[in-house]
Design a protein around this nucleic acid. Structure first.
Length: 324
DNA sequence: GACTATCCGCTTATTCCAGG
DNA sequence: CCTGGAATAAGCGGATAGTC
């Protein structure tokens, strides 16, 4: 614990050029036992502000919500700034603390004290460019409408049941469809009802720009023919069945990442003679596959962007043959 | 009863940096 | 300058506790 204190002093000195004076806190024994066991509390001051330092050295990281509660309890006995001090913290919990404007210091790494106007980090990353894409679950709903010609009305719960997602996920899907303007969403009583007013090729053209390739990763797998039968054909193998393109020498199959986690198939570092290529998909390819081939639209999305002009032509050929 | 806000942790993608 | 791997941000979707 003294190590943490020392590294804290060092860090503040290095970054702000201030020597922290840290004292033990007299009123600590007023607090619930649980708090005293979890944290060490110290009094200090920084830039003329009285601070209460909550040193958290717990084995397992507490969740932000729990931490917030603890701080509220401490706040009963202390009127002023409370600063959490961590040795380490996961990136997502750090982000959430910042979202909640909870001040904290990770010695040697980061200092976030919004009320004092201090926000230091080793470096700031550039924000990602925000692409307007839909999430895989939303894509699944749209593909469901297109592939099975079921344009609604749908409700979150009916779609959750049908497509094996949670109801919460479907709530988010409806939000995305609404904000992308891909469907009409109304409320009937307690039910939220989705109706795709654009159908068939119209819907496809509208949704196309929002959609993403289902392929997360392509890998080689050494496998016998038997176990390959369990998976739908995809990639160039699939395309060769839907068009005049000749079949590739290495067969391509698809499976979801959930299936990949539980399968006995093993990845091989490269293409051996008896191997097949597997595409790990963001959603289940089996849901829409017919006769052992993945659905045309997903296949199109998985290969669009291929530089080979023969592939491009075959993709267009396949699309044209669709009976919307 | 149907939906949603919030919380949570896992996974994936992006960015940075050090060392060639 | 590249490149590999470490660090970090963002995405995702389930669980839970509400809300209307």
């Amino acid at each position: 614990m003294t190590n943490t204190l020392n590294s804290l002093k060092e860090y503040v000195n290095d970054t702000l050029g201030i020597t922290l004076a840290i004292h033990s806190w007299k009123s600590e024994n007023k607090l619930p036992l649980m708090i005293r066991e979890t944290y060490r509390l110290y009094e200090s001051d920084l830039l003329k502000n009285r601070l209460l330092l909550m040193l958290a050295d717990f084995e397992e990281e507490k969740t932000p919500a729990a931490i917030k509660k603890h701080m509220e309890m401490v706040n009963e006995a202390w009127n002023g700034e409370i600063v959490l001090v961590f040795k380490e913290i996961t990136s997502y919990n750090r982000k959430r603390l910042i979202e909640h404007k909870v001040p904290f210091i990770v010695p040697g790494n980061q200092m976030y004290l919004p009320t004092l106007g201090v926000d230091l980090r080793e470096y700031f990353r550039k924000m990602r460019k925000n692409t307007v894409k839909i999430s895989p679950s939303t894509q699944v709903v749209i593909l469901y409408a297109l592939n099975e010609k079921k344009y609604g009305p749908h409700t979150p719960s009916s779609m959750a049941e049908e497509l094996k997602y949670s109801i919460m996920t479907m709530t988010r899907v409806f939000d995305e469809i609404e904000s992308a303007g891909l469907g009409e969403i109304t409320t009937e009583g307690r039910e939220r009802v989705l109706l795709f007013n654009a159908k068939g090729k119209d819907l496809w053209d509208k949704a196309r720009d929002f959609m993403v390739s289902p392929v997360k990763k392509r890998i080689y797998v050494k496998s016998d023919i038997q176990s390959l039968r369990n998976y739908p054909m995809a990639g160039l193998t699939g395309l060769s069945r839907y068009s005049l393109l000749s079949e590739p020498s290495t067969s391509v199959y698809a499976l979801s990442s959930e299936e990949w986690k539980t399968t006995k198939l093993k990845e091989t570092p490269m293409a051996y003679e008896s191997s097949a290529m597997f595409e790990i998909w963001r959603y289940s390819p089996a849901r829409f596959s017919r006769e052992g081939i993945v659905d045309k639209l997903s296949l199109y999305l998985s290969l669009s962007g291929d530089k080979d002009s023969r592939v491009e032509m075959a993709l267009e050929e396949m699309l044209e043959k669709i009976k919307w």
